[in-house]
Design a protein around this nucleic acid. Structure first.
Lengths: 342, 342
DNA sequence: ATGTTTTATGTAATCGATTACACGAAAGTA
DNA sequence: TACTTTCGTGTAATCGATTACATAAAACAT
């Protein structure tokens, strides 16, 4: 069918050289106006499309950026990606998606593949299982590819990051539970080698101390981010000598599991027991017993990551800019923790 | 820092030519074993990485595929993309994401951008607003880029598709409501210029007729896929002379809105009124009053789309294969429509 | 020893664009 | 008129890989 049209085809038809065609199409000032118009008209007539691969090879810029996330089918990550895509679209960048499924091996593979594919930048949320081998990250930086962490970040020189203030998020949620009258507040945490979980935990702890409440080690449960994990965790907590009367969960899914388990045991929420989650997943709002949760403004996080990338991408390679953006978390107070005004 | 290493650098170091290096790295049989080993070792030592852009330009294949969806932050589309990515990962393809936000203009732009970027294939869910201008699609096909529609499909020669049997989905849900004793079943539909909504509607209608129930035009409401739209629709329906006693909604979000509005009016579900949705969004399962919904197996849809692409991509350009895969919908019966066993 | 086949490697074109440099023609200057 | 600029275009290198073709060397046959 329609074979690919190149600038050589246009040149041949007009009896000029490809260089002239290229200049005409690129608005090079040193070209006769008549020639420019003729070339542009002919190019359109022949349905010419610039071959982006040739351009990419020549210029060394692919106009692709890579995004690595644990998985795409979670509202949080999907929303971040949406923000990235929307911010980058007007600048002509395409977004390549990679999933790690929480595997370090996969994460390293993805990093290498993206660098090999000559992406102009990489934005990612690092995967949970920590190892001290930063070689894949350093490889990216050595190739002068801007690297930006969002949400789940690691401390690596030369890497910018866009996160939320997880400490504050944890603090706000816990303080709110205290204000509602809860006195024995448990916490669901995640892999604390990740800053996000560490900081949410620290915010939780600080809120307790600031209010003169004891911090109890046995109230901290490490759960996966799943409904079942939340159920199991409640099961454990209720076997304690002094069972808690509230949970601040680092995961909305675990919070949901907790609520389901509590209901099953006829513990009424919020009068006997309050629950707050983290991430503001859509379902927390939809439930009849809507769930209090900390919003991470994923859309804004994606947009901001893209903006940080755009700032870095055109800077001279020698100067390493390292920007740390911290967004404010927002507590959405809902029925699962509101004793006062319902 | 570490400047890019090319096969020429390796050749120079070993006093051979780039051609030999290339052959050694590509397991070309006509190369001395000793040379091959030496080249491979040296390449590794120099941290050589093949430049995929150069390869892409030479071979005409970018190893990128494009995916166009209305938006990425919906569980359905994100899950389809997950399926596509997982299936294509072992084959070395990267997935480029584009969003249309339901805009035809954006859809056409995306199609052109992807073709210009030399993707090896495009998978997409067409956007709602129908127009009869297929030129952007034809442009893709003329460039011999495999095009595959998933879920929301259009009738265009040469385009394969992976959909579910929406008729059956509509039929199953409606039949179930009838079996639960509902006699006046309303339907929330979407833009019926899209086959998916048309077919769900037809399935609904057929189920009514097969059970000897009347089809009433005023029971069909065209809603957007949102909670508020569902509320408004219920408001309309309850003003009818004979208000319905059930709703089969083409959207889970509208179904949720309907439930919220019905509760507000103290109409009890499922005893007085039953509701079934479509898509099996995660929240339908999470609700205390869980919502009956038709599952579209998005993961499998994505996987299947990828497989259809893989089948087509290596075929000779001249033969146009057009494959239509139709997956079976699965009705998940939950509390919002179950009068019998709860 | 001579001719033939095989093997391993080099040469150079190619993919499709951009661009430094060269150069002839036109325009401007004295 | 002769000399310098300016203008517009052509020539050819370049980005980094692959590969058809050529060729020298080695292996083999007689």
């Amino acid at each position: 069918m329609s074979e690919k049209v190149t600038i050589y085809d246009i040149a041949e038809k007009l009896n000029i050289t490809a260089a002239t065609v290229s200049r005409a199409l690129n608005n090079n000032p040193k070209i006769k106006e008549a020639t420019r118009e003729l070339v542009i008209k002919t190019a359109a007539a022949m349905n010419y499309k610039q071959n982006k691969l040739a351009l990419a090879l020549k210029s060394g810029r692919s106009n692709n950026i890579g995004v690595i996330v644990p998985r795409i089918d979670s509202n949080f990550f999907a929303s971040v990606i949406r923000g990235i895509e929307e911010e980058l679209y007007p600048h002509g960048y395409q977004v390549i998606i990679c999933q790690t499924h929480e595997s370090i091996k996969r994460e390293n593979e993805n990093l290498h593949t993206l660098v090999d594919a000559q992406v102009d930048g990489i934005m990612m949320s690092v995967t949970g299982i920590s190892d001290e081998n930063d070689s894949a990250f350093r490889n990216v930086l050595e190739k002068n590819v801007p690297l930006i962490f969002f949400d789940r970040s690691k401390h690596i020189d030369g890497v910018s990051s866009v996160t939320i203030n997880d400490f504050k998020g944890g603090y706000l949620a816990t303080k709110h539970l205290i204000d509602e009258g809860c006195r024995n507040i448990a916490h669901f945490s995640g892999d604390q080698s990740l800053d996000i979980f560490k900081n949410r935990f620290l915010g939780y702890k600080q809120a307790l101390l600031d209010s003169g409440l004891d911090f109890k080690e046995e109230y901290v449960i490490y759960t996966k981010s799943s409904v079942d994990a939340g159920k199991d965790a409640v099961d454990k907590l209720l076997q304690l000598e002094t069972p808690p009367d509230a949970i601040f969960s680092s995961s909305d899914f675990a919070a949901l599991g907790a609520i389901q388990e509590l209901k099953e045991r006829n513990i009424s929420i919020p009068s006997e027991f309050c629950v707050a989650g983290f991430s503001n997943e859509p379902f927390t709002k939809f439930m009849e017993l809507s769930i209090t949760s900390v919003d991470q403004s994923p859309l804004e996080m994606g947009r901001m990551s893209a903006r940080v990338f755009l700032e870095q991408v055109d800077k001279t390679d020698t100067i390493k800019i390292e920007k740390k953006v911290v967004l404010a978390p927002e507590l959405h107070i809902r029925k699962s923790s509101t004793r006062t005004n319902f």
